[in-house]
Amino acid sequence: MPVEIPKDSWPGSVNTVTLGATGDQGGSRTSTVTIGGEQSLPFMHFENPTPHRPVIAMEVAAARPADWSAVLLEAWGSTLDDPAVWARACEDAGADLIVLQFGLKGSDDGPVSAEFAVEVVKEVMDSTGLPLVVLGPGQAEIDNSILVPIADATKGERIVLGLCEEGNYRTIVAAAMANDHLVLGKTPMDVNLAKQLNILMTDMGLPLDRIVMDPTTGALGYGIEYGYSVMERLRLAALQGDAMTQLPMLVTPGVETWKTKESKVGAGIPDEWGEWAERGVNWETLTAVALIEAGADVVVLRHPQSLVRVRAAIAELTASETA
């Protein structure tokens, strides 16, 4: 029986965004990462090939994380003490990108400072050739105080600076524009808020091919369904031609997963939860893969084993000859 395969033909597509710049391009990265460009829903190869596979970013903390799960501490060992070593280890493990996350603390437990931040960024850039996403601690004033000098000190590297939120996007966008960087906009799980921030950011003159958006997700069991549906809706809107939703999406299953009790805690929990480390990795990988199938272009992970599994899944999903 001949059956006509129902193919969607969409008028819109996702923006193509290149992260990082090599020596020839005004930066110092050994490789760049290009994301976006989708003309179909994720992995519908019978309609269109996936132009750029989803990529995996590994999170590196600028100062040794004080509150990470013991499972992660064990997995990474002493590399956690030095962000440069850690970033290198991520590259060796097969990461596509490094997300360098600053907290409120700088060196010697003092508050994070511009000098410290610039220093760490430079060390990390010396130790890895991967493109970088650099995130402030998430408090507008502190973010501005470190991201602006970082942007100045790394002009031309096409770093992704974040987080741009409604309260502080102007400063970060201005710093990105002045130094040929990209920005990451983050809005709380809402299609319209995401659009609104994108309108505001592009309104400042920042070209769409320099913005990545984080629509915010919850971890498995902790609101993943909201993030999942918001992402599906954003992607559908993008394909339908709504320019302010056509940004590639970055989401953070690692951050979300490893703050849940299921991943973080190993004692005093029900037997039905099973073995701790494997559960944590499952929690992170299931979250990541569900979000990749909802349209994520970048997933930020924490556990090295998760990197291996998610990378394998991405490879399988993007292998078009089997479709």
Binding site: N144, V148, D152, N168, R170, T171, V173, A174, A175, A178, M204
Partner: peptide
């Protein structure tokens, strides 16, 4: 210019 420009752009 950068120092003041950013403040003019972000509204400070």
């Amino acid at each position: 210019l950068r120092s003041w420009g950013i403040q003019l752009v972000d509204g400070r």
